[in-house]
Design a protein around this nucleic acid. Structure first.
Lengths: 158, 158
DNA sequence: CCTATAACCTACCTTGGCGGTAGGGTATCA
DNA sequence: TGATACCCTACCGCCAAGGTAGGTTATAGG
């Protein structure tokens, strides 16, 4: 695999938040149960998303998470980068602060890394695809949402 | 990193073989020394490349490896797939034998995996880029490529 | 207030694969 | 016959990934 489950799970969480996209925050427990993923682990991923400013949170009772911005303005490039860190197809390739692509093996100016061409292309195509895909594009049609039962509004006291 | 050093090193080996691209096989010791990579480890990678039919070998004295085909007909998709196995951006996505993309989490016909759209796109862009880049495109010396007709290489939009 | 909820934080643990080594066996030259 | 160099199997240390655990803080409702 090229992306870890951090991305896989994290994207699912974002989609879930977008699906219920309202003002009311959604508790992680709901999402964890709905997706069948371990809550404690999701908390780590969600922390990254929050620190990246993609979601915000409300603590305490009736707390939870909600999208910080509109789903259509959030790209998968932001989400994946928040979860995985910088996107690099191979270890020797990284993007310099100025945006250019650097090769760790090009220590000397003389020595040109021939394989850099390949990994630069690969990286560009991945980033482009991630940037072109917004969170909104992954949210299923509204009629599909209605098929999934929403949690009970108020549980009856026993 | 998304590709391991298997790809990084393996592609370097292939480029080296293409660079010296003649009938005479090149011993792995030369390449290992030239690239500054451990010989014993390269032997493993090279075995994969050979089993995939990308290179062939001659044993014994004056033995070594050479490209099984012309550099212009070898795509990076073949090389990377031989080294890494099937190309999948996340674990839950794999390509079925019929070519369609399968999602491990779509166990029930009911449950549609929304994130599948994303990973399918990402995978497609990676594979496309790897397929568009031939080994010949990574060989620095132009006079060596002239031995064979120029590849029908489409320039990749930056 | 008090309790339940749920975010938040830090630390820890286990496992598998990655990168690499080691030591042989076998084919091919000179 | 020796040197070369491919070939094969087995093994190993390390580290991050994936997950657990246990706490602390903030908020809503009664």
């Amino acid at each position: 695999m090229m992306f870890s489950t951090k991305s896989e799970y994290g994207v699912r969480v974002m989609v879930e938040l977008a699906r219920r996209g309202g003002e009311e925050p959604v508790p992680l427990t709901e999402i964890a149960e709905h997706e069948g993923l371990p809550l404690a682990y999701l908390e780590h991923l969600v922390a990254r998303l929050r620190r990246a400013g993609l979601i915000d949170s409300r603590r305490g009772a009736h707390g939870g998470y909600r999208l910080a911005r509109d789903a259509s303005s959030i790209t998968m490039a932001e989400v994946v980068e928040a979860l995985e860190g910088a996107i690099a197809p191979v270890e020797c390739i990284s993007s310099a602060p100025d945006g250019s692509t650097r090769c760790a093996r090009e220590t000397e100016a003389e020595h040109v890394c021939t394989t850099k061409i390949l990994w630069t292309r690969v990286r560009a195509s991945i980033v482009q695809t991630l940037e072109q895909t917004t969170l909104a594009a992954l949210v299923p049609a509204p009629d599909l949402i209605q098929l999934v039962p929403l949690p009970p509004e108020k549980p009856v006291a026993a």
